[in-house]
């Protein structure tokens, strides 16, 4: 029996609709780029900012966006709007730890960080049961071997690294 893609109550209807949506572009080459625009006193302002972000020497292929107040966000973390790009990279490292694991050496059986089967980028450790304080046993700063490097190319208003992050 063929799935009913014309009946909205059937799963195939929603599935077929979603399969037909345009696929988002996730490939970025070169430095991350953010363009902000503002109209002020009859003037049109465009501020283009580029970042080269590396973690352990590897480029971080993430679309960084900057809002007009200078805070940073990215597609991977929709509920986060952080005053510090350093904090944003730290949250990415903590949220997707396998993407930042040490690079495999030939023959060690790993398949890199390209999203192949069997490579779940999230939460592989048990962080304690219900009722705990929720504080990380690794501390709240990822000072356990990761080395991120954020190079700012010309954005003068990103001075928030010492401000509190989060919502």
């Amino acid at each position: 029996m063929q799935p009913d893609t014309a009946d909205p109550s059937q799963p195939a209807f929603l599935a077929t609709y979603l399969a037909g949506l345009p696929q988002p572009e996730h490939e970025h080459t070169g430095p991350a780029r953010s363009v902000r625009e503002d109209d002020f006193d009859g003037h049109h302002v465009v501020i283009t900012t580029t970042y080269e972000i590396t973690v352990d020497g590897r480029p971080l292929d993430v679309h960084i966006g900057l809002s007009n107040d200078g805070s940073a966000h990215c597609h991977g973390l929709p509920a986060y709007q952080l005053p510090s790009l350093v904090d944003l990279v730290r949250v990415l490292i903590r949220t997707f730890p396998d993407e930042f694991s040490p690079q495999p050496t030939p023959g060690d059986g790993h398949d890199g960080h390209d999203g192949h089967d069997g490579h779940d980028g999230q939460h592989t450790n048990d962080h304690g049961g219900a009722g705990s304080s929720g504080h990380s046993e690794h501390g709240d700063h990822p000072e356990h071997g990761d080395h991120s490097h954020v190079r700012d190319h010309g954005d003068g208003d990103m001075h928030g690294d010492d401000r509190p992050g989060g919502q």
Binding site: C74, G76, Q122, H127, A130, G165, G166
Partner: peptide
């Protein structure tokens, strides 16, 4: 799930993860 760029990806079937009440910037 998604990767750090927000792209869909398959994961080896696993359980849910929750970590309540982390301090900023993580939670």
């Amino acid at each position: 799930a998604t990767d750090s760029s927000g792209a869909l990806r398959q994961v080896t079937e696993r359980g849910l993860a929750r970590k309540f009440g982390q301090n900023a910037p993580f939670g």
